[in-house]
């Protein structure tokens, strides 16, 4: 069997590019990977495509400091070199933060997602009428899947259940919170930044959340002849 390596790319999406959707981000990376000359693995057949998988789609209008995608490659130029190559031919608004090599058999990014953290702010003039900072302790019980919620530098920090087993959006939490106070969210009231995407290293109820690339390793150059891949 052909020895392919799986790498996990962490990136941030910011500024004007918050207005491009999830499919556009996928298309962007397909082309950027080619421009960067990354030795990506392809499927076979008449229209071969790159073997690529994204973690959790990000809502239109949101920024993120913790997005991930997995890529299968035939050879690997090294973590720093790969990140650098992607950024050199990339655009402002998407920045590759790190690249790590996954151990063999690692679950793909999408299947791994267990939680995500966010900072949420109100746009100026769109705060609710009650003092929303004062009753935050209520929030924990509003919805299933709120793992953490606290005030951090005048913004709300939330850690929420995410992924195929259940997906809680920060806007749903805020809607429920405001509803409990007889209010509704004003249009586009929230500025949301996803801070990190997590997988769960624990078992059952014992959650042990870690950033999605915690299972990977920062590596130098590797080719698929090197026995050490993923060891």
């Amino acid at each position: 069997m052909k020895n392919v390596m799986k790498i996990r790319i962490k990136f941030r999406k910011y500024g004007n590019l918050k207005f491009i959707g999830h499919l556009d981000v996928q298309r962007y990376f397909q082309k950027t990977v080619r421009r960067a000359g990354i030795d990506v693995a392809y499927t076979t057949g008449f229209s071969p495509h790159q073997i690529m998988s994204f973690a959790a789609p990000l809502g239109l209008g949101q920024e993120s400091n913790g997005e991930y995608l997995d890529l299968e490659v035939n050879s690997f130029a090294g973590s720093a070199e790969t990140a650098d190559a992607l950024n050199k031919c990339g655009v402002e608004g998407i920045e590759v933060l790190s690249v790590s090599v996954l151990p063999p058999g690692a679950k793909n990014a999408m299947a791994s997602v267990a939680a995500a953290s966010y900072t949420v702010r109100f746009r100026e003039g769109r705060e609710p009428d009650f003092d929303w900072r004062r009753h935050l302790e209520e929030c924990g019980s509003l919805k299933d899947g709120i793992y953490e919620l606290r005030l951090e530098k005048n913004a709300l920090y939330m850690l929420l259940k995410t992924g195929s087993a259940g997906n809680l959006k920060p806007s749903a939490v805020m809607e429920a919170y405001l509803a409990a106070h007889g209010e509704t969210l004003k249009e586009n009231a929230l500025l949301i930044t996803r801070e990190e995407t997590y997988l769960d290293l624990g078992t059952g109820e014992n959650r042990q959340l870690a950033p999605l690339d915690a299972v990977g390793k920062i590596c130098g150059a590797l080719s698929n002849q090197d026995g050490e891949i993923g060891s």
């Binding site: 004007n16 590019l17 207005f19 491009i20 959707g21 556009d24 962007y28 082309k31 950027t32 421009r35 031919c89 990339g90 655009v91 402002e92 608004g93």
Partner: peptide, 8 residues
């Protein structure tokens, strides 16, 4: 995305 420019 039609209106933001900034493409490659």
């Amino acid at each position: 995305a039609r209106y933001i420019g900034g493409e490659v």
